[in-house]
Structure formats: C-alpha cells, structure tokens
Design a protein around this nucleic acid. Structure first.
Lengths: 339, 339
DNA sequence: ATGGGGTGTTTAATCGATTAAACAAAATTA
DNA sequence: TAATTTTGTTTAATCGATTAAACACCCCAT
C-alpha cells in the first residue's frame, strides 16, 4: 500500500503548520483563518488526494463513527434485510456499520462483542440468542451504548425495539379461526428466547379466548441441532393425529421453509388439506404454488428506531427507550377460507 | 463508555514500565524477561480485564487486521453465503471482515471503497458491478491489495477467482439438449458485466455446436430498473412465439425467482410445458413444486481462494493470481427428460 | 506610549501501543 | 581485578490527527 498523504504533507507543501491544515479541513476556527491560505490548503488537499486517517483521528477523539450490528444469522433474509436498513439509517448520521453473525451461538456472540469493543465501535445493535444475558449485563456495566432488536430480555432495563409477538400471533390464529379452521397446530423452537415464546403464548391465548380450544395438544417444538428432520417428524405427527391438524402456524421463517418443502414431498395440498401461516416477508413464499400468508414485521421502522435509540444512548448513556411494534398479517392463498 | 484499561494502568499497578507490559503481553523479548514479573503482568492484565486498544495499535503498526468485502447485493443469498465463508476463512488468519453492499450502483461502490480505504483496511475483496473499471485501476495505482470474486475484468491484470461461466452454461444447455429439449430460451440482464455475458456466450455456443441451433432468436434481456415486469414480459413473449420455448435458462437467481413466480401466476406446468434451469443453490428452489435444476457455484472454494489470493497480495503486492473454477449441474425435477 | 483587543498562525501535549536503542546491574570470562 | 557478556528493564521516539494555549502582529483608544 502506497504511503498515504498526511496533514503534514499538505502543511509542508503549503508552508504552514499541520495544525492550521487540520483547522481548515475540519472547518474549525473558521472566523480567523486567512481566506487565501485556507483556499490554498483546500486546493492542495484535493490535489494530493488527501484522505483523513481515521485511525489517527479515532485515537485522539475516542470515536470511530462505527456501529456494530450482531445478527442471529446473516443468511436469514430477516437479518440481511434489517442489516440493509440499519446500514442506510446509520449512514444518515454518518456512521458505518460493521456486521457480525453469531449463528445463534452464545460463544460466537461473546467473541463478536469482544471484537467490536476492542475495535472501539461507538455502539452496538444486538439480536441476542440464548444464554447471552450475562453479556448484556456486562455491556451495561461497562456502559457501552447498545440497543437490542427483535430479541430482548424483558427483565433487563435496556434499550430495545421488537415486534409485539404476542398480539401478532394472536391475530394470526384469529384469522385462521375466522377462516373456519379449528385444528390449528404450531411448530416452534425448543428455546428460552423470549420473543419466540411470546409467539407460543399468543397462539395458546388466541385458541383459548376465541374458541375455547386447548392448543397444547397440537403444539410441537423442534431442536435447533436437527431442525430439518425434527420439523418433518412433528409435521408427520400432527398430520397423523386421530383428529389431524387442518392448519399450521410456523413460528419462524426457517421452520416454515423446511415445513413447506416437506409438504411438497409428502404432497399435502395447501390450503385444501392444510392451511399455513408463517412469519416474515420472504420472496420464497411466492415460489410455493399457494403463496403463503405471513406476519409481516415492520423492519423499516424497527431498523430506524433501533438506530435512533442507540444514537440517543451514545449521547446520554442513561437514556433507556423501549418499544414493541405491531405486525401486520398479509393474507394470501395458503389460508383461503374453508369451503 | 467507561474509560478503558491501558498498558499504562497495568504498568503502574505492577510497578514497571508500559514497554515491558507490551513486550510481555505480545510475547516478544521472551528470552530475557523475568518469569515472575511476566506472570504478575499477565495476572494483572487479566484481573483488570485489559483489552488491547486496536486503534492505537493500528496507528503504530499500520495494520488493522481487517479486510473489506464489497458485495453486489447483500440480500442476495449468493452474497450472504459468500460473506459467511469469507468471514470464517479470514478469521483463520486473524482478520475481521467488514461488509458493504454496493447494490449494483457504481457510485455506492466508489463510496464504499473510499470508506474502507479511509479506515485502513488491509485489503479488499470485491464483486464489482458495471462501470467500476476506473475504481479498479485506481486501487491498482494506489497499490491497495485486492482480489475480485465472481465478477472480474478479463483485460485487467488483477487477482480474481470466479466461476467458469462459459463452460458451466454450456453444460447446462447440453443437459437440456440431452433431455430432448430443442426450443431453449434464455433470460439475461442487459449488461456489460463480463461473467453474465459469458453465460450468454456459453448458451449460444452450446446450441450452435451441439445442435446447430441459432439461439439468438430465443435470447432475451431485461433491465435492472424494472426487472420484475421485464421478466414477465419476455417470458410471455417466449411462450407466445409461433414455436414457443420448451425450456428456459435463467441467467441469475434473481431472474429465476421472478421467473418462477410468474410461472405460478400463469400456471405453466414445469417441466411438462417448460423445463427450467437456473444458477446458484437457493433453498427457494425447493419450495417450487418441481425443484429446480441449477448450476451450483463452488462458493466454499471461491471464498477460500479469494482470501488466500488476497493475503498473498498483502504480503507481496506484485503477486497476481487468477483462477476460474468449474460449476456443477445439480439435476432435479424441473428438467425431467421429455417423454 | 501603553495597554487592550483582534487576527492569523504555531507550539506542544495528547490519545495508547510499539519498538529500537539505551541503560544498569549481575554474571561470566580473561 | 578489569573487561566483557548477559540479563532485565526503561527511555524515548513514533504513528497522524486534534486542540488548548501561546505567540506575534497589527490596530486603535486613552
């Protein structure tokens, strides 16, 4: 890499001190600087193609103008879409975003936090997985500004923005009931993650309150380690019940992907034999012959608000803001009303 | 953010100079340092939870141990998968990867390069879009180590690793011919991007050499700005020809996504009425009732090799390595042999 | 003429880590 | 015992930018 042009190079070329060059290029002390000299400095900077050495600047100012965003899984479209939104939003406030993917692994999550903190990011946006509460507490102790997105710990007094998972799921189930479905199953992860369990709670509450049905019988969980085979297994179970399910709610886009592929394999007709609802807006849902009904999350808002909350926290570490946002149900072919 | 622990803090706690602390923690000068003192320093560092200030280290060493990866579009699974591979590969050599998405926009591409260079990344991995040749030339002039991946300029003497697009496409067409299809169409972008045009070249060559067919008549291009409606339009055209196409090659996963959704809409049966081949391994291909045949790119290899080439270039800026890799055709339902 | 107020610019310390070179004390050799 | 090596540690410069404080003028009012 060619040696880069520094303030000093400009200074010596123009014949002034590097301090003056710094003042001019940063627009400080503007009142007093000789206009001709200032112009000369600017011209020379352009001519030499000067670029600030951000490393040196950061060392002195203790700010990197960088945010870290740790997603659960970068290859999940939910994460990559959010990443895109946050990147754009942060850019408006002159921040660059670094990404990391924890792959739902607490150990990797910890490493990423460490990496980001070592690189002196100014703040963190986090979608934490299981067993990460200690890390969150640590960040709070260290007074590192951060905000949680999508996932959060309700008991911890931290910034967060997330979907109102309980009500979003409640409405989804309500929709199925309104379409005449009664044997409604659900497939969720076996997890301690709050927002996923809120979905289960919404499912059970809707069935109970709206139709006096006990959903526990048709609720199934799958393990992250053998997600695909587990999904296949529990679906087979639910469809082989004495009174089989006639509708199925998948608690995540990942579960739904495997679930729908399995429906293709075992040639179950949607929605005639089984109605399907899932979470998140994926183009994949349109490749299926019966485009899937889904709970759309307000990604744009979530990303913007998270960035806002974080920046507020960076200005005042005591600022704590929390928000849950409503989802919207996008109704399509896969939940057509029962004849 | 709490004031962080520095070398000096450890030094004063132990009662030695910060130089000695630096030597110990970096394992230099190991021969001469008193073992007890060294242990004490290490213990104190742990006790105070010391983390190197990478900013300060970078300023001095002129290395950030950071690579920049600019993808064409982070929400394309091709990109995010590659990002994941490169991240893991780079980590093995102790590099962190920063990501940026140019969204196929030359202006954004330029900005990202600037951002990364200002932040002193040690090297760049690039998937450049259209009109970016000037940027590539600039990087070469500035002697910034970089490698191109997936996309490259054949005329520029730079590092790259990419798919052998010509032969991969040739084989895909050959497969269709072998299955008995004769009216084989192709939908590609209207672009100057080399690797995409190689696909067109492979398509035409295979038809000509293997079956003496002139493919130009069934070749269609779409514009990036209205990609979805263009895809719909050209597909309708090809299916409405006097002699309609009985097979279709989509030149990218994005085109195929829209294309297959359209087939759902207009209820064309795959493969009975139309066989389909696409590029890239996407889970989406399995949501379609006739799982799609596709050209699989050797992503793992591409990512590993690109990282390798880049690191070689960082050690010796004159090192230039180029490689094209074969794809593999994954044959499935969407190209079943004609009865 | 003297002191006060602008104006324009420079000096010098600083951020935290690295590292060549210097130094001091102990150990070894002559 | 004096000279030399070895051992253990410190000094001080450096990376490049920032910025408070100092400085040197000039102008003007008392």
């Amino acid at each position: 890499m060619l040696k880069r042009v520094s303030l000093k190079d400009i200074a010596s070329q123009v014949g002034v001190s590097s301090a003056l060059v710094s003042y001019v290029l940063n627009g400080k002390n503007t009142g007093r600087i000789n206009k001709l000299v200032a112009q000369k400095i600017r011209d020379t900077a352009r001519e030499l193609n000067y670029r600030t050495n951000q490393i040196a600047r950061s060392l002195k100012t203790n700010r990197t103008n960088t945010l870290g965003f740790i997603v659960a899984n970068i290859s999940n479209p939910f994460s990559s879409h959010l990443a895109r939104i946050i990147e754009d939003e942060a850019a408006k406030s002159n921040y660059t975003v670094l990404f990391g993917s924890s792959d739902e692994n607490a150990h990797k999550f910890r490493n990423l936090i460490e990496t980001f903190v070592n690189r002196q990011v100014d703040g963190l946006i986090l979608a934490p997985g299981e067993d990460t509460a200690d890390q969150i507490v640590y960040l709070k102790e260290q007074q590192v500004p951060f905000v949680m997105i999508d996932r959060y710990y309700p008991d911890l007094d931290t910034n967060y923005v997330a979907l109102d998972n309980f009500n979003a799921t409640y409405e989804a189930i309500n929709h199925l009931l309104a379409c005449g479905y009664r044997r409604i199953g659900m497939v969720n992860y076996d997890t301690t993650i709050f927002n996923l369990n809120e979905r289960t709670r919404g499912y059970l509450a809707a069935l109970k309150n709206e139709a006096n049905i006990d959903g526990t019988e048709t609720l199934r969980v799958v393990m992250n380690r053998n997600i695909r085979s587990d999904v296949n297994k529990v679906m087979d179970e639910l469809l082989a019940l004495e009174e089989p399910v006639d509708a199925l709610l998948f608690a995540s886009n990942e579960i739904a992907l495997y679930g729908v592929i399995h429906l293709n394999e075992i040639k179950i007709k949607v929605p005639e034999e089984l109605a399907v609802i899932t979470f998140d807006e994926l183009i994949s849902w349109d490749l299926f012959y019966a485009p899937l009904t889904y709970v759309k999350q307000p990604l744009q808002q979530m990303g913007e608000i998270a960035t806002r909350f974080l920046i507020d926290s960076m200005e005042d570490i005591n600022s704590v803001q929390q928000l849950v946002l409503p989802g919207s149900l996008i109704i399509r072919e896969s939940t057509r009303s029962k004849a």
